[in-house]
Simulated assay, not measured.
Amino acid sequence: MGWVVTRRQFLYGSSGLALATVAGCAADQTDPTTAPRPSPTGASGGTASPSTGSASPSPSARRTPTPSPSPTGAPTPELAGTVATDLDVPWGLVFLAGGDALVSERNSAKIIRVTGRGKKTTLGEVSGVVPPTGIGEGGLLGLATAPGDEETLFVYYTTGSDNRVGRVSLAGGKVGRPKTVLTDIPTSTHHHGGRLLFDDDGMLLVSTGDAEQSSLAQDRRSLAGKILRIRPDGRAAPGNPYDNRTWSYGHRNVEGLAFDAAGRLWATEFGDKEADELNLIRRGRNYGWPEVEGTSDRDGLTDPKATWSPTSSCSPAGLAIARSTAFVGALQGRCLFAVPLDGTGAGKPKAYFAGDHGRIRNAVAAPDGSLWITTSNTDGRIDPGADDDKILRVTV
């Protein structure tokens, strides 16, 4: 678990559980093909770490975290209580420096501020969002705050013609109208992607789905089926491998992004029928969809580090990394998976809270070292409970 550091980086100029074929563990080495190290702000579920960028914050901007004893041994997730109830398909969640969180409601398009004591304040709706119908997906999805600027929020959302990334002001505690950052991300009933995450260079990582047009995932010019890396104004980020916005490709539907403590980028990916995946993302790599699901022996394709088979055992959505463990929210698996990480390798997933809380959508590392996990029981797939949807606090 990291801490939130307020510093401005250059911007505007980041079950039955059928488990797992897993790759063996590898040495923990720095790989030049990994994404730049994470920004401590704006991460939707990753382990934040102190910045090593070239920009030096002024002394008044630095926040020195209070040292605390580090837990030892493998984490053992335990439910510590309910943070909030009666939410409408909570999807994105990002923490602010003071410990409150901003939450997006997928269907209502509302941004809600939630305190650690569970007080909810609606800041407003993001205009232009078209919610899904039936058991469709889309709507208001991922969130990321601009590094060093908690009054600027980046949002991923669905319109009548595309998926897009927008920037909204939270000045005065109200949601302003979104200003377009990136448009024309292909859309469909399903497979929207939607996760946002800033890296340590102030570039925004954007996960997109294949929009049910699987061939687009292999087209490096298309915005679909990718992890994109863009400047905060939407232009391609410097250092991208193909001189466009594509960072990695061959993805079916990525809904989880997180950095580990060494700055390596990990992603969860929905498979079709054969295998869901946990991938270590490297610059310019091809992750195989639709040519393969799971592992293969084909040249030029990058294998996942962990898989779940069949896909009905998991459906991995949100991703948090803490204590060298990837915590994965499982929708069909209806649990939280813990996957031990050892450098660039991953071990066998283990399920927690199986069936206890219904569909688990998101997992986010909180400033106090816990996880906040969200349920997704009001999305039309199952019958919700009386207080659904919820945010739960889990100690690790």
Rank of each mutant, 00 (worst) to 15 (best):
T187V: 13
G99D: 00
P178T: 08
E212S: 15
T189S: 15
S104A: 14
G128I: 04
V114M: 00
L102R: 12
D199C: 11
Y156R: 06
N107R: 15
D162S: 14
T158H: 10
F198K: 12
T158L: 05
G148T: 11
V103N: 05
T145L: 15
G118M: 12
T189L: 12
V126R: 08
L205I: 08
G136D: 07
D200C: 12
R164E: 04
D162H: 07
K174N: 05
L197G: 04
T145A: 14
A101H: 01
L93A: 14
D184E: 14
T121D: 08
R117N: 13
Y156L: 07
D201S: 10
G92I: 07
T180N: 14
G160E: 05
I112H: 09
I185Y: 11
T121E: 10
H190W: 12
P132F: 02
G148Y: 06
T159A: 09
G176Y: 01
E137R: 14
P90I: 04
A211P: 07
G202E: 06
V126T: 08
L102Q: 08
L102Y: 11
L93D: 02
G98P: 00
D199H: 02
G98I: 00
T187P: 01
G160S: 14
T121Q: 13
D201P: 04
N107E: 03
G134I: 10
P90K: 08
L153E: 01
P131S: 11
G116P: 05
A171Q: 13
T121H: 09
V130P: 06
N163R: 11
G92Y: 03
S169L: 01
M203D: 10
T122P: 01
T121L: 11
G172Y: 01
D210Y: 02
I135E: 15
G166N: 06
P90S: 11
Y157C: 06
V175F: 03
A97G: 11
G92Q: 06
V94R: 11
L143R: 09
V103K: 13
F154N: 07
T187F: 01
G124P: 05
R177C: 00
I111Q: 07
K120N: 03
P186K: 06
T122G: 00
T121V: 13
L182E: 05
L93G: 12
D184T: 14
Q213C: 00
K179E: 15
L197S: 15
E137D: 12
G138C: 08
F95S: 07
T115R: 12
T158S: 15
H192S: 10
G138E: 03
L204I: 07
Y157E: 02
V175K: 08
L96I: 01
L123S: 09
G202T: 12
S127F: 00
H190D: 10
F198V: 05
P90T: 07
G202Q: 11
G124K: 06
P186L: 03
G202M: 10
R177M: 05
H190G: 02
Y157V: 04
G202Y: 09
E137Q: 15
T145E: 05
G139K: 07
